[in-house]
Each structure stands twice: as C-alpha cells, then as structure tokens.
Amino acid sequence: MTLLAVSGLNKRFGGVVAARDVAFSLQAGELLAIIGPNGAGKSTTFNMVGGQLRPDSGQVMLAGENVAGLAPRAIWRRGVGRTFQIAQTFVSMSVAENVQMALISWHGRVFSFRSRAETLYRLEALDLLDLVGMRGDADRPVRELAYGDVKRVELAVALASQPKLLLMDEPTAGMAPKERAQLMELTASIARQRQIGVLFTEHDMDAVFAHADTILVLVRGEIIASGKPDEVRANARVKQVYLGDMGVEAAMRARRGRA
C-alpha cells in the first residue's frame, strides 16, 4: 500500500494561495524532497501533512487513513515523526533523557508520578542513540553538543515512536558541510533499512540530489515539476525559476536603459 498519498491539497492565507491542488505520493523506504524558492509553499505543504496547519480542502492519506486536519499529536500517534528546521530539543535534559522523554510519551506515561523518569526506557533510548551514532554522548547535556549532533539526537527522538513516516524540515540547515552529508546518509540508510518513508524540504541541492528518490518542485503553491532527480535537473522550467523567472524582461530593459 502507498504509505502517504496527498491529493488536492489547498490552502489560502487571506488572498494568498499558499498551496494549490498539491498532490504526491510516497512509498515506504522512499525519500521525497520538496524544493522551491522562498515562499513557494514548502512549509505550508509540510505543515498540512504534519497537522500544524489544517488544509482548506484535500486529503492526506496515511496508510489508507485520511489524517488531514487532525492535531499534530493525533498524527504522531499514527506513526509520523518529525524534525524541525531549527533543531528542537529539551535543552535542560541529557541526550538520553531527550529520547527517553519521547519513549515515555509513546508508552503513554507522561502523567505518571510513580517512577523516576531517568531510569525509564533507558536501554531503548541507548539503542536508538546507537543507531544515530550518539550513544557515547548519552549522558551529556544536549545543550553542550555541536549542532550536527543535536540534529542526530532529534532524529533519534523522532524515531522513538517507531514512525512509518518521517517529516524533516530542512534537516541540514545550520550545519557544517561535512556534517550535512553525514546526516543525510544516515537518514537515508535508516529509512531504507527500516522501510520508513521520508518527506523533507531542503535548500542544500547536494543533499537533495544525492539522496532523494523523487523531487517535487513547488513555486507559488503549485507543483511545477516532479520526478527523478535527473528529470528535475533537466527541466527547463525549473532552471528558469531558480535564476529568477519574474522580471527577466524588465531587468533586461533596465539594462538597456543603463547602457
């Protein structure tokens, strides 16, 4: 079964169309990148899948169930983990505790007063940290980590609920170039190995073209191209958009006026 099938997704903010008839699908184990210039509607689309925004119309079918308009918590319960453009962690906790917190929530024990939190699900947390290569830092405060490592911890947190789908908003933003490649490789290998679908937005074209199975190009809320990386790269319309599709003529006229 298709893991994620989005169809006819629309969203307006006042008079601005942020998403128009957005449709795509994603299989288990597949990486799908949404790219596009600023204000293209990437985050809007993303947040409608994650539940942070309610679509005006359209369907978000997750493993056969329409989750459009459900609260983020409900969508998370159904197996969607997510990471943020600016890493969101619990800065007062250790690396392991960040993951343990996610596990505590996954097991429905947030409102428990009985046990000590620091001992709960510690082994499971360490396993997840092992997976992202952070086990050695388990007991360090997360606020002391390098940013690239924080992103790894965030990935482990997102994996704690055994998600079917990972939403990653600009996973490599704010990282040093070397760290970016490592994180994307890690993400891709975990996704393939665990058959998790990954939907991500990204500015770093190296990351996109090296790892995405499918690329979706959004401009002004509409999909202007989608397909395999090579197809998208060769698409003339995409190229034009990236070099500035608006005001080309105008700029040329201005230039002539200047000469």
């Binding site: 994650g50 983020p72 918590r73 998370w76 319960r77 983990g81 997510r82 943020f84 969101q88 962690t89 619990f90 800065v91 007062s92 906790m93 505790e97 343990q100 917190m101 996610a102 505590i104 929530s105 996954w106 947030v110 409102f111 939190a117 947190v157 997102a158 704690a160 609920s161």
Partner: peptide, 17 residues
C-alpha cells in the same frame, strides 16, 4: 520531565505527543 519538556520546547513536546 514532561512539564520541563513543555517548558524547554513546546513545539517539540507537541511533536512527541
């Protein structure tokens, strides 16, 4: 811990349920 998590990052806390 949950209360502290909500304080540290409400958005992350919400995203883990």
């Amino acid at each position: 811990y949950g209360l502290r998590a909500a304080r540290d990052s409400a958005i992350r806390a919400d995203a883990i349920g």
